[in-house]
């Protein structure tokens, strides 16, 4: 049955992990390390100087696909969110993808005999990696800087001509709708391994790859959901404020 408990400030951090262990990488991303003792979320956030509203929002969004933040929306600066999203990106590119790559490269038992199969899987993964990397780079090079510029401008209520030019070059309406494509290749990879990889293969290794793929898939989906349902509306709101500011 669906778990719908909302994670709240008074909950013990340890309890949260027992409720939903898939939150572990999320917790790590905030720099919180294990060994929580009996500290509550509130205490831990104070200890690590973490904005608790933001932390809870992210935890709940990951924990419950239905959680849709509305009221909390403005309790933290968007820079925090961008920071978090970037951290997630580097977790994918620097931790998860290399881990998977290593496992996949060693997937075929006898690379000499099965050279073609070997090459094929490597190439497919390289393909996936490129697509994911390109998507992430587009966000980091184009979208995020725009958002930060926008936030700064609105906050300082002052916009130089050069900034105006920069801001006019982009709008969140164009936020790339690529999440489905990236997801598609991951699904393909899962199915190839689950349904179509002929023996001999190293079963343990394949299981490990699959576990990792399922985990990555969930994490990526939640990440994309945060971008689509939290970030985009926040930016749209900033854009409105900016328009007003420019007109005034």
């Amino acid at each position: 049955m669906k778990k719908t408990s909302v994670i709240n400030p008074g909950m013990k951090m340890a309890e949260v992990v027992h409720i939903d262990y898939t939150l572990l990488p999320v917790i790590n991303r905030f720099g919180i390390s294990l060994g929580f003792g009996d500290e509550t979320i509130e205490q831990i956030c104070r200890m690590y100087h973490i904005n608790m509203d933001f932390f809870l929002e992210i935890l709940n969004t990951f924990h419950d696909p239905d959680y849709f933040p509305e009221e909390n929306l403005k309790k933290y600066p968007i820079g925090l969110l961008i920071d978090y999203l970037k951290k997630t990106h580097s977790y994918y590119l620097e931790v998860k993808v290399p881990e998977l790559e290593k496992l996949i490269t060693g997937m075929i038992d006898d690379p000499k005999q099965e050279r073609q199969k070997h090459k094929l899987m490597n190439e497919f993964f390289a393909h996936y990696k490129k697509e994911l990397t390109d998507h992430i780079l587009r966000e980091e090079d184009k979208v995020y800087p725009y958002i930060l510029d926008l936030e700064k401008t609105v906050k300082e209520k002052n916009c130089s001509d050069e900034m105006k030019k920069r801001l006019n070059r982009y709008s969140i309406d164009h936020f790339p709708d690529e999440h489905d494509d990236v997801e598609e290749k991951l699904l393909d990879l899962k199915n190839i391994i689950i349904k179509y990889l002929p023996p001999p293969i190293d079963a343990n290794r394949c299981n490990a790859i699959l576990y990792m793929l399922f985990e990555l898939e969930k994490d990526l989906n939640d990440h994309a959901r945060i971008e689509d349902t939290i970030m985009v509306p926040m930016v749209a709101d900033l854009e409105k404020q900016y328009e007003k500011m420019i007109k005034a």
């Binding site: 094929l120 899987m121 497919f124 598609e184 290749k185 699904l187 393909d188 990879l189 190839i192 179509y196």
Partner: peptide
């Protein structure tokens, strides 16, 4: 039918099943 959508994925499937030569 296959549960594979991308061209790259279909290619892998085709080679694995010897429908085409890698």
């Amino acid at each position: 039918k296959l549960g594979i959508k991308s061209v790259a994925g279909l290619t892998v499937y085709a080679v694995l099943n010897n429908y085409i030569d890698g």
